[in-house]
Amino acid sequence: MVRELYIGVMSGTSLDGVDTALVAFEAGEHQASAPHLLATDAYPMPEGLKSALLDVCLGQATTLVQIGQLDHQLGHLFADAVNQLLEKAGIEASAVTAVGNHGQTVFHQPDGDHPFTMQLGDANIVAAKTGVTTVADFRRKDMALGGQGAPLVPAFHKGLFSEQDSTTVVLNIGGIANISVLRPQQVVIGYDTGPGNMLMDAWVYRHLGRKYDEDGAFAASGTVNPQLLSQLMADPYLSRPYPKSTGREHYNLPWLEGQLAALAQEIPEQDVQATLLQFTAKSIAEQVALFSHGGQPRLLVCGGGVNNPLLMRRLAELLPTWTVASTREAGIDPDYMEAMAFAWLARQRIHGQPSNVPEVTGASGLASLGVIYPA
């Protein structure tokens, strides 16, 4: 058996920082064993950089110069995050086979006449500054094959969680919520269900100046508004068939403001937050419930949303026949699941192994995703 080390780097739609994970794989020629998480780190996103990225994500007028500068800044940010993890773990760069760097998504448009996705963060800088071969640009090969380019983690989830007699759904609640559906003897299904923390984070930041609603306290102080909830649940994305994916280009503060403007009367700020939390929980639960199979279906939750106890309680209430728990109970750190997935994606690319699931993304065939940037 050969032991290889990989680092996964993930900066999600929440823009709250860069997660890094050092992962070990013990493998034969091609097939990797279950990953072993050796070390993790969270590297902060500078506020100025976050603000500039939000402007791009929300469609503000920009220039090619600004895009190039952001690409450069993010390249250094990701490299610094990797180097900090290496120092923290006491690992030399030469011991790591590759870095899997997702990059920062600024726009994702998988449908229409000219589908595209754009992730910034120059992987050349990451490879040069860390001294570690870097794999990046994971989404576009799948899109070139007619797929959505997202979600990318269901193939990782499939190998991670042993098959049960009942359905296991792995739910990642980042800025956007996405699910991987693992059913006995059936193909994997995965897609974005809709908003995760994105709308709640935007609203609490506007009114309380906080990056997120800690423990769901702001939402708990309000009451769900039935009219607003009904209006939000009528969003056309939610009823679209999968494969599908979405992001900040759809669910954002201007979108929410439009929803509020359509109401007959103004509602209190805390009631908006309470309704947004219920919207997130309900839009997730309605999709998860479609895949119930067996006597003990389970929903394993990861991502930032797992740390919101009110959101977790609402999911459990809406899915009374399911076991709702953190992925920690299955042995996986919920805060670093996606970073681990990109370490796995990097390994698949280095070994020329497929890493997409055509049934999930809609691609015409299997592909080994990512572009290799040698150290």
Rank of each mutant, 00 (worst) to 15 (best):
A136G: 11
G149Q: 06
Y191N: 02
M118S: 03
S162D: 09
V187Q: 14
H157C: 07
A123Q: 13
Q185T: 01
A128S: 15
D122Q: 11
D137L: 06
T168A: 14
G174K: 01
G131W: 09
Q185K: 15
P154W: 12
A177Y: 08
P154V: 03
G174N: 01
G149P: 04
V169N: 06
D122F: 02
V135N: 02
E163H: 02
G112W: 06
V188Q: 13
Q186D: 12
P184T: 13
V188R: 07
G149A: 12
D111S: 11
D165K: 14
S166D: 09
K141I: 13
P115G: 00
G112A: 11
V132I: 15
Q185S: 07
V170R: 10
T134Y: 02
A136W: 10
N172W: 01
P151W: 06
G146R: 11
S166A: 15
Q148A: 12
F138N: 02
A127S: 15
D122T: 02
D137C: 07
P115C: 08
V126S: 12
G159W: 00
K158H: 15
P110A: 04
L120S: 05
P184W: 13
V153H: 00
P151C: 11
S180E: 02
S166K: 04
N124M: 03
D142R: 00
S180Q: 12
A144S: 06
A136E: 12
V126H: 04
S180D: 05
V187I: 08
V126G: 05
V132T: 13
P110Y: 06
D137F: 11
D165N: 02
T117M: 09
I125A: 01
N172E: 09
V132C: 06
R183D: 06
M143K: 03
L171R: 07
D165H: 10
V153G: 06
V153R: 01
M143C: 07
G112H: 08
M143N: 07
L145R: 02
G147M: 02
G159P: 12
G112T: 00
A150N: 11
F116E: 00
A144P: 08
G146P: 12
D113N: 09
G174C: 03
G159Y: 12
Q186N: 08
V169M: 13
V126D: 00
P110K: 00
A136H: 08
A127W: 11
